[in-house]
Amino acid sequence: MSRPQDPHRPFFSFGNPFRMILPKGSYVSPRLLPLLNTFEETLAERFGKLKPKDKEEVLSLSWMRLAMEFLCETHTDIKSLITKLELPVSDWDEKWIDLYLDNSVNLLDICIAFSSELSRLSQGHLLLQFVLHNLDSNSSKQFVRSLSSLDGWRQHINKKNPRLENCFTILDNLTETLNLPKVKNSAKGKVLMRAMYGVKVATVFVCSIFAAAFSGSTKELMDLQVHDTCFWAEAFTDLQAYVNGEIRYLFSSGRVTVLKELEAVDTSVGKLYPMIQEGVGPVEAEAFQSSISDLGKKADKLSQGLDLLAKEVDGFFQIVLTGRDALLCNLRVASNISDPIQKNKNVEVQAVR
Rank of each mutant, 00 (worst) to 15 (best):
D223E: 09
V265S: 09
G279C: 03
G270S: 15
G254D: 11
A235R: 08
V226P: 00
D266N: 12
D223F: 13
A241S: 02
D238T: 08
L259H: 03
Y249N: 07
T257A: 15
L259T: 12
V256F: 04
T267P: 00
T267R: 08
S268A: 15
E246K: 12
N244M: 03
R248W: 13
P274N: 08
Y242S: 02
G270V: 10
Q277V: 02
E278L: 14
D266E: 14
V256S: 10
E263W: 08
S268T: 10
T257F: 12
E234T: 13
S253Q: 15
Y242G: 00
A235H: 01
V269C: 11
K260S: 15
V243G: 01
R255K: 14
A241L: 09
T229P: 00
H227Q: 05
I247G: 10
A264F: 05
F251E: 05
V258S: 07
Y273A: 03
A241Y: 07
E263A: 14
E220N: 06
E261Q: 15
M275D: 05
N244G: 05
S268K: 06
K271V: 15
A241D: 10
G279V: 03
P274G: 11
L259M: 10
Q277K: 08
Y242V: 10
H227I: 06
H227V: 07
I276D: 04
I276Y: 01
Q277S: 07
H227W: 04
E234Y: 07
G279P: 00
Q277I: 01
T229Y: 02
Y273G: 01
W232F: 10
Y273V: 05
L224S: 04
L239D: 04
E278R: 08
Q277P: 00
V243D: 00
V256I: 13
L272H: 04
T267H: 08
I276A: 03
I276G: 02
L224M: 14
L259W: 07
G245I: 03
G270W: 02
T229S: 15
V243Y: 03
L272I: 12
E220A: 02
G254C: 13
R255T: 04
K271W: 14
T267M: 07
K260W: 06
V269D: 07
V256R: 09
M222T: 02
P274M: 13
N244H: 12
A264D: 15
W232Y: 11
E261W: 09
R255V: 03
C230R: 01
S253G: 04
V226G: 06
E246Q: 11
L239A: 08
L224F: 09
R248C: 06
T257Q: 11
T257D: 13
I247T: 06
F231T: 15
S252M: 09
V269W: 05
Y242E: 05
F251I: 12
G279D: 02
F251A: 10
S268Y: 06
T257S: 15
S253T: 13
E278H: 13
E263G: 11
K219L: 06
L272G: 06
S253P: 00
D238M: 07
Y249D: 09
V226W: 03
E246S: 02
T267Q: 10
